[in-house]
Computed example of a mutant assay.
Amino acid sequence: MAVLLVAAYVFITISLLFVIRLYTVVKTGQKHRPGDRGPVAVLVVAGSGGHTTEILRLMECLSSAYTPRHYVIADTDRMSEEKICTFENSKQHSGSRSQFTICRIPRSREVHQSWSSSAVSTLNALRYSLPLVFRVRPDMVLCNGPGTCVPLCVAALLLGILGMKKVLIVYVESICRVQTLSLTGKILYPLSDYFFVQWSSLRDKYPKSIFLGRIV
């Protein structure tokens, strides 16, 4: 019984320290903005279909300070890589120096996949996300809703929790979300440093969010 009590005490203590550290990491990220300290290495999470189209429209608005750019797509995504390469090649033709990579990780959740199997596939995606994020060490993660961004953002938070590097998490909710957040948005709302919505109705429901009108 005494051993169980000690183990429980240690577990509670570690859990409290983890929560405190997580809170500190999330809060300290709001003291500076991307680009204030020179070039920004950005990890861009591209989903399939409309998610990729929207995220590339966002990338068009970013200055050349956001470099290098590390795109992450799901291993079952057959279209996003071509779109990304086309976009980056257009930047080269416009005179901007293009520094980018494209990485693949397992998809966290397929459309209509059950919740129980989604938990397993998300853990599998996290297994690939951790070494990727720890190797790239981005200054910022930019995402707009695909489930693949959840394990990547968790890995980015872990960098800060371990005291290795604070990574800003910037989330832009899809324009098709008018009244409610997506599941990914609900998960990342308390964890993101900057959370953008594109409808005032969402801003009214989620006070932490930032409303700038239609971004994409």
Rank of each mutant, 00 (worst) to 15 (best):
L191F: 15
E173T: 03
V42I: 15
I73C: 11
L130S: 01
W199K: 09
P190T: 02
L16F: 14
S64T: 15
V178E: 13
V19M: 13
V111C: 01
S96L: 13
T122A: 15
S129Y: 02
L22Q: 06
F18G: 09
T67A: 14
G35A: 03
S48I: 04
V45H: 11
A7Y: 09
Q113Y: 00
R33T: 09
V6W: 11
Q179G: 04
R135M: 09
A155C: 04
W199Q: 04
V45G: 10
Y189H: 05
F11E: 06
I12E: 11
P146T: 05
Q30L: 14
V216L: 10
L132R: 02
R109H: 08
E173C: 01
L168T: 07
F196G: 07
K27F: 10
G147M: 01
L142W: 00
K186Q: 11
S129W: 00
T53C: 07
T122V: 07
T184A: 12
S64N: 11
H51D: 10
I102K: 04
G47K: 04
V136C: 05
V26G: 03
T52E: 12
S96E: 15
V154E: 12
S116L: 12
V45L: 08
L123E: 05
V45W: 05
P39G: 09
P207V: 05
R177H: 13
S201Q: 12
S174L: 15
G35N: 00
T53R: 15
S118N: 08
V216A: 15
T67E: 14
D139Y: 10
V10E: 13
L58N: 04
S98I: 05
G95T: 02
T86Q: 12
Y189D: 01
T13N: 10
E60Y: 05
D139S: 14
H32C: 05
V216Q: 08
T76F: 12
A125I: 02
G145Y: 02
V40Q: 07
T28W: 09
T24G: 09
C149S: 14
E82P: 02
W199M: 04
C85D: 04
D193N: 14
C143A: 13
L43V: 01
A119Q: 06
L62P: 01
D193E: 01
L4Q: 10
E81N: 07
L58I: 06
D75R: 06
S15P: 02
F196R: 04
N89P: 00
V120N: 03
Y194C: 05
T53K: 10
V19E: 12
I84D: 03
C103S: 12
P146W: 09
K83Y: 07
T148L: 15
Q198H: 08
G147S: 01
R214Y: 14
Y71S: 10
D36I: 03
S63N: 07
F87P: 03
Y189C: 02
Y9P: 01
T86A: 13
V178A: 11
P106T: 06
R21I: 13
S118E: 09
R127H: 12
S121M: 11
S90I: 11
C85R: 15
L132H: 08
C153L: 06
R104T: 09
S48F: 10
N124D: 03
F100W: 10
R104S: 11
M1P: 08
C176N: 09
T53I: 15
S200P: 03
T13A: 15
